[in-house]
């Protein structure tokens, strides 16, 4: 406080000198004094800045030494990224595996259905006694073939369904991985809150007016139960309603 009171005296003296020089018409002298005045103001500003910087630097060093944060940024966060990438890979694989089985079995089902339909039609005719003996013999052969193929086909379908069932095993793994990342995020949250609180004292002179500069509505991604946004619609019907209310 001694520093600043001597600064105030200096200002006062200089200010008085400036006034007297101006009143005497010595504008050049006055200019020189104004320059000296602003220089000493700058000096005190630099001193304050130096003090702040030192304090900030010290705090930062303290944070670096905070092992939790170091751990988080050094290894756990990179780990978490890898883990989440892995989740994407695993779910991608499972999805494609499942779709492979589906793409394999759908044509099989269609073929069996078509064959079955053919036989159904022939059988109808037979039941109406609208069939020659030779046709009937052919029908018998067709039925025999069909039954064999159907047996084989259902075997394939059962196998495929089991494959699809097993392909869901990813969920257990991804569930665990994601839970771990959730824990990590919580830890991160705690550390950041601490960081903000600790630096709060220094950062009193925060920028005013940056306010809530949320840019043009950022993308939300899929709506998650419990996190629904107020400005989101829910479901295709509401989308359709919104569009038709706008005339589309």
């Amino acid at each position: 406080m001694d520093e600043s009171s001597s600064l105030n005296d200096e200002y006062l003296e200089k200010a008085r000198d400036i006034i007297s020089e101006v009143e005497s018409g010595n504008i050049d002298e006055a200019d020189k004094l104004v320059e000296e005045l602003s220089r000493s103001r700058d000096k005190s500003l630099f001193q304050e800045l130096g003090k702040l910087t030192r304090e900030f630097h010290d705090s930062l060093n303290n944070f670096k030494l905070d092992s939790k944060l170091t751990e988080l940024t050094g290894s756990e966060i990179p780990d978490a990224k890898e883990r989440l990438k892995h989740v994407i890979e695993v779910t991608d694989k499972a999805a494609h595996k499942t779709m492979n089985v589906v793409e394999d079995l759908l044509p099989l089902c269609e073929a069996l259905d078509d064959q079955g339909e053919e036989i159904r039609n022939l059988w109808k005719r037979f039941m109406k006694r609208d069939m020659e003996p030779q046709e009937f013999r052919n029908l018998c052969k067709e039925i025999e073939t069909y039954l064999a193929e159907q047996h084989q086909g259902t075997g394939r379908v059962r196998k495929g369904l089991t494959e699809i069932l097993m392909a869901q095993d990813y969920q257990d793994i991804t569930g665990q991985i994601i839970s771990r990342v959730i824990n990590l995020v919580s830890e991160l949250e705690v550390s950041l809150v601490k960081l903000i609180k600790d630096s709060g004292a220094l950062m009193e002179e925060t920028h005013s007016g940056t306010g809530n500069k949320k840019e043009k509505a950022s993308l939300d991604g899929p709506q998650v139960p419990g996190l629904e946004s107020n400005s989101a619609v829910s479901g295709q019907d509401e989308v359709d309603d919104l569009l038709s209310s706008l005339g589309f």
Binding site: G221, S231, A232, Q236, V239, L242
Partner: peptide, 24 residues
């Protein structure tokens, strides 16, 4: 998967012919 009103309106104004939200 985007279903915020502003998005839907923006798409309509940009001339989209149809808008389907996931899952569909």
């Amino acid at each position: 998967a985007e279903q915020k009103r502003e998005q839907i309106v923006e798409a309509a104004q940009a001339g989209v012919n149809g808008y389907i939200v996931k899952p569909f």
